[in-house]
Each structure stands twice: as C-alpha cells, then as structure tokens.
Write a protein that binds this DNA or RNA. Structure first.
Lengths: 203, 203
DNA sequence: GTCTATAACTCGATAGAC
DNA sequence: GTCTATCGAGTTATAGAC
C-alpha cells in the first residue's frame, strides 16, 4: 500500500485500517501498523478518528453493511423457493468472493460481543430467516419438495456459502491450491450449491 | 470458575486459560484475566508455564489434538462411501457438540499463522482429503452416484458440519434459540447431514 | 493537516519475601 | 508453591511546533 497519492489521507487510513484490522482483529492490530501501512504518522490517526476503538467501529460497520443488507433483501424477496435459493447463493458468493476475509472478521467480532452486535447491525429486527422457513414449509405441504426441517435446510445453505471463506487458509493448505484456484472453486459454487440443495430436496 | 478446591493449581490454570483464550483469542487474552478466573496470582502463571506464549501453545495443541485426529482417521478408514459420510458427520459432530467453541478458536489461529500451524498439527502430511476425493470419483465411475466435483462435495460436507459452530451466536440470535435448543439441533445434524448429502448424490 | 516528542497507561515478566 | 511489589517494553493518546 503506502502512499497512494490519488487518495485522500482519510481514505488511505480507512483502507489501511481495514487491511490491518481484518488481518489481526481488533486486539491484535496496532495503530502503528495502520499508520505505517497508510504511510502517515500515528498522531494523524487520532486526529481523524480520535481513538482506536472509534476507528475500528467505522471499519466494522462498513464490513457488516457490505455483508448483511443483500442477504436480508433476498430472504425477504417475493420469489419462488428454488429461484430464491439460486439467487441467494449466487449473490452472496458474488459479494464474498470480492471480500473473502469479511466473513471471518465479522463473525469474530460478533462472537466477542453478541449483544452489542445484534443491536448495531440488526437494530430491533432479527434477520428474516423465518420468511424463508415458512416458504419451505409451504412447499413441503404442497409436496413439491420432500419433508425436511426448514431450520436445517437454511443452515445447510448458509454453511455451504460461508464456510469456505472462513476456512480459506485451511482449505488451501489441505487441497494445496493457490488464491486463483480457490477463487475459481468459489465461482463454481455460485451455481453448484443451489444445484446440490435442489437435487437433495426436489421430489 | 474461581477456586475449585478439588483441582490442582495447574489444572485450574489450564481450565481458566482455555476459557479465556477461547473467548478472546491469543492477542485479546490477558494473563490477569486468566489468573483472576483461576483464583490465583499472575506470578503463578509464569511459575507454571513461563510465558503467555507457552501457556497458549499448551491450550492450542490440546484443542487441535481433540479436533483433528478423529477426522484424519475417518478420512483414511476403509469404508464404503456412504458409511464413511455417515461416520464422519456423526463422529465429528459428537466431538464439537461437547466442545462447541473449539472450531472457531482453532480456525482463527490457523488464519493468523497458516504455515506455522500446518507444520505443528499435520507435520509433513497434509490432511488426507484426497483419499475421500478418490473414493468419490470411483463411485461416479461406477455410476452409483451422480457426477459431482469431489472437491465441492467434500467442502459441502465439511461446511455443514463445522459452520453452525463457527456461527453459533449469530445463529442463536437469528433463530432466537438458547444453548439447549441449539444443542438439540446439532444432535439432529448427526444424521441429517449425511441424509441430506446422500439424497443429493445417490442415483 | 501533519509532524515530533512525550505523557499516560497496559501488560507480560521478574525479584524477593514468606 | 504462592504472594506482593515493581520493572520495563510496548501501546494508545495527547501536547505543541510547524
């Protein structure tokens, strides 16, 4: 990174902070690392963002804002079940392929303070998983899909979308593949996951 | 925790260290927190384990030792594919249901130092995923299952087993369930995941 | 806005009494 | 083995010059 003249100081700080926080987490990150990466002085960080905590919050909120709204929109969308599955897996993967480190970053901070988090990101409305669950139950009653617990089906879908990004380094180690190959695999999953699910539940 | 008289000091330290490290990660944990939780003095931690890093290593190795060997054994086992799937999902879930915070803990430390980790845990042999992959290819050739990329199939299985534990707090938030209900769901997954996979790939 | 210098504080680690 | 007290390194945060 270091000294991109086409960016404002504030932008460079944000870019570097994102990089360092995502890499090391809130506790592991040093203001010095961020300053160095941005090619500026430590004091400037405080000039722009007052404290490490405040800076972190900005980064975290942006990360959460990138991950959640799309998900929520799709879950709420008025679409046939199979279309919704395809749309969800495709759109979610599209986002995280471009931001492969976001899921672990966000997940970790949620785990460190579940309650503070839930209010910050969701306000008072929980993520509308029940909408999708109801839709699944309806299809079961119509016998267009085999009986399956909606909770598990949703969890399966989420799992297959998110996990590879959480376990990226371990997957790369055990499969012996580089970043480009990993990315290719994830591109394939955009359609593969929905195919896999539908093959399992379709009657 | 604090002062369980039936445990030796060393055992209390280990129990508290595990709790704190798992909760906050290596960087976020404080020796003071561990000492407080164990009901002893900071200096004693150093008396028993010399340094924070050494203490962490003990905890981490134990965690990894609890997670990986079983997995490796099952992957290497000489079993028909469907039996192996059932066995893997069942046995893996059995372990993590009793240690729901291990997966995130281990995953995080892997992400922070992928190479150091790989040597520590696997030595020079990678996790034998290719064995399972070959077995899948064989079944495809025999036409007992439909054609599917072995890499994706393995990833799907892993995802559905591991993810719920990584995302536990988020899942509990969005489904509005407590620890007991979560545990019940995970018990169901012991058989549900294999059923789900087999329904998708069986011819 | 940006820098240097330094204050204020946190935390891992050690010394030394009991 | 266990404690109190303290050191010293490393970090966040601020003061003040330019």
């Amino acid at each position: 990174m270091v000294k991109k003249k086409d960016q404002s100081t504030e932008e460079r700080i944000l870019a570097s902070a994102k990089k360092i926080f995502v890499e090391k987490g809130m506790a592991g990150a040093r203001m010095q690392d961020i300053a160095d990466d941005a090619g500026i002085n430590k004091a400037l960080l405080h000039y722009y963002f007052r404290s490490k905590e405040k800076l972190f919050e900005v980064i975290f909120k942006e990360a959460a804002a990138r991950l959640f709204p799309t998900i929520v929109n799709i879950l709420n969308a008025d679409l046939p079940l199979f279309d919704k599955l395809r749309r969800f897996t495709n759109d979610y993967l599209e986002i995280v392929i471009e931001n492969p480190y976001l899921p672990l970053f966000v997940l970790n901070e949620i785990n460190k303070q579940p309650h503070a988090f839930s209010k910050k990101v969701f306000g008072n409305n929980r993520p509308p998983i029940h909408k999708l669950a109801e839709q699944i139950e309806k299809e079961i009653r119509k016998k267009t899909i085999r009986p399956i617990s909606p909770a598990h089906l949703v969890m399966n879908m989420m799992s297959m979308c998110v996990f590879p990004f959480l376990g990226k380094p371990m997957i790369q180690l055990s499969m012996n593949i580089d970043d480009a190959q990993f990315r290719n695999l994830m591109e394939e999953r955009k359609t593969m996951i929905a195919d896999f699910i539908i093959a399992s539940i379709k009657k």
